[in-house]
C-alpha cells in the first residue's frame, strides 16, 4: 500500500505500460482458451445437471446424473480400468522412455536415424496406428501370435489378446499406448541427459565411483526435473486415453477396456445421454486436477534442480 502511494508518476506510467504489455500478450491466447475450452466446459457443467438427448428439450434434474454415475457399476468399472491404465502406463512409459533416452545418449553412429526411428510412432496418427495394431494382435492371423507360437509359447487366454476379457485386451491396449508415447519420452530424456554437465561425472570418476553409483547419485537426481515433467504430461494423456481403445476394442470384451473417456463418449453419442456424459467429464476434470495438485505438491520434495 505504502509503496504504491509513494510511486512517482514515472513509475506509475511504467506500471501501466507493463500491465498493458501483459494484457496485449495474453489477450489472443486467453480468448481462444476462454471461448473454445472454458465456455464449452461451463456448458458441460451446466449439462451435467440436465437430462438431454440433444433431440428433445433438456430437463433440469439436479444431481440425478451424479447419483446415477456414482451408483452405476459401469462407471466404477471404467474408473477402475482407467486407474489400472494410468498406474501401468505412466511408470512404464517413464521407465522405458528413460531407457531409450540413455541408449540414444550413448549412440554416436547414425544418431539422426535412430532418433527418427524411435520417434516415428509419435508423429503418426493414433487412428492409423491402432488399426494396424489391431491386426497385429489378431489371435489367429496376427503377427504377434505367429511369432509367439513359433517361439513355442502355448496358447492361453492371454494370446486371445483383444478378445480376452480377463486382462489380455487391456494389456494389448496398454502396449499400444506405451508404444505411441515412449519415443516422445525418450527424446525428452535425451535432452535432459545432455543438459547434465560432464564435470559431475569427471569429479565422480576421480572419486572412484563406479558406473552404477554414477547413475544413481548423479544421473537420476539431476534428471529428476525432466522425469517430473514427463510424468505430469504422461499423466494427462493416460487419464484421457480413448482413441486407441475406441479403434481396437470399443471398450470390450465385456467392458474390460472401457476407460472413462470412452464411457463418456459412448454415453454421449451412442446412447444419447449427453447430461450423464457431461457429468462423467466433470468428474474426470476434478480427478485429474486432484492428482495434478498432488504431483505439484510432491515436486519440491522429489525434484532436484541442478
Amino acid at each position: 500500500m505504502n509503496v504504491k502511494m509513494k510511486m512517482s508518476p514515472q513509475m506509475r506510467k511504467r506500471k501501466i505500460k507493463d500491465s498493458l504489455v501483459v494484457g496485449v500478450c495474453l489477450a489472443p491466447s486467453a480468448t481462444i482458451i476462454l471461448v473454445f475450452t472454458y465456455m464449452a466446459f461451463i456448458f458441460c457443467v451446466f449439462l451435467s445437471f440436465n437430462k438431454w438427448n440433444m433431440l428433445s428439450p433438456m430437463k433440469w434434474v439436479g444431481f440425478a446424473n451424479y447419483r446415477e454415475a456414482f451408483t452405476s457399476p459401469d462407471f466404477w468399472n471404467s474408473l477402475k480400468v482407467t486407474f489400472i491404465y494410468v498406474i501401468v502406463a505412466v511408470p512404464s512409459c517413464v521407465f522405458l522412455g528413460m531407457l531409450i533416452g540413455l541408449l540414444l545418449n550413448w549412440v554416436t553412429f547414425a544418431r539422426g536415424t535412430f532418433r527418427l526411428l524411435v520417434f516415428l510412432p509419435v508423429i503418426t496418427s493414433m487412428v492409423i496406428a491402432a488399426i494396424i495394431w489391431k491386426w497385429l494382435f489378431d489371435p489367429n492371423v496376427g503377427f504377434i501370435n505367429y511369432i509367439l507360437f513359433s517361439m513355442g509359447v502355448q496358447a492361453s487366454h492371454w494370446t486371445q489378446w483383444l478378445k480376452d476379457p480377463s486382462g489380455g485386451a487391456l494389456v494389448a491396449v496398454l502396449v499400444v499406448g506405451i508404444w505411441k508415447r515412449v519415443g516422445y519420452n525418450g527424446v525428452l530424456f535425451l535432452a535432459g541427459l545432455k543438459n547434465i554437465s560432464p564435470t559431475f561425472y569427471e569429479a565422480a570418476t576421480i572419486d572412484g565411483a563406479n558406473r552404477l553409483q554414477k547413475f544413481t547419485k548423479i544421473t537420476l537426481p539431476l534428471l529428476s526435473p525432466t522425469t517430473f515433467i514427463i510424468t505430469v504430461l504422461q499423466f494427462f494423456s493416460a487419464f484421457k486415453v480413448i482413441e486407441s481403445v475406441l479403434v481396437m476394442t470399443k471398450g470390450g470384451p465385456a467392458k474390460s477396456t472401457e476407460v472413462l473417456v470412452l464411457h463418456l463418449y459412448e454415453n454421449a453419442f451412442s446412447y444419447l445421454k449427453m447430461g450423464y456424459a457431461s457429468t462423467v467429464s466433470v468428474v474426470l476434470f476434478f480427478l485429474i486436477m486432484f492428482f495434478t495438485i498432488i504431483q505439484l505438491a510432491l515436486e519440491k520434495r522429489i525434484v532436484h534442480y541442478q
Binding site: 480376452d164 476379457p165 470390450g252 470384451p253 465385456a254 451412442s270 446412447y271
Partner: peptide, 20 residues
C-alpha cells in the same frame, strides 16, 4: 429408442459367456 445401449448389454453377455 435405447436400442444401442440395450444391444451393447446383449453383446457383453455374449462376450462374457463365450470368452470367459
Amino acid at each position: 429408442i435405447p436400442f444401442n445401449e440395450v444391444r451393447s448389454i446383449f453383446n457383453d453377455a455374449w462376450d462374457s459367456t463365450i470368452l470367459k
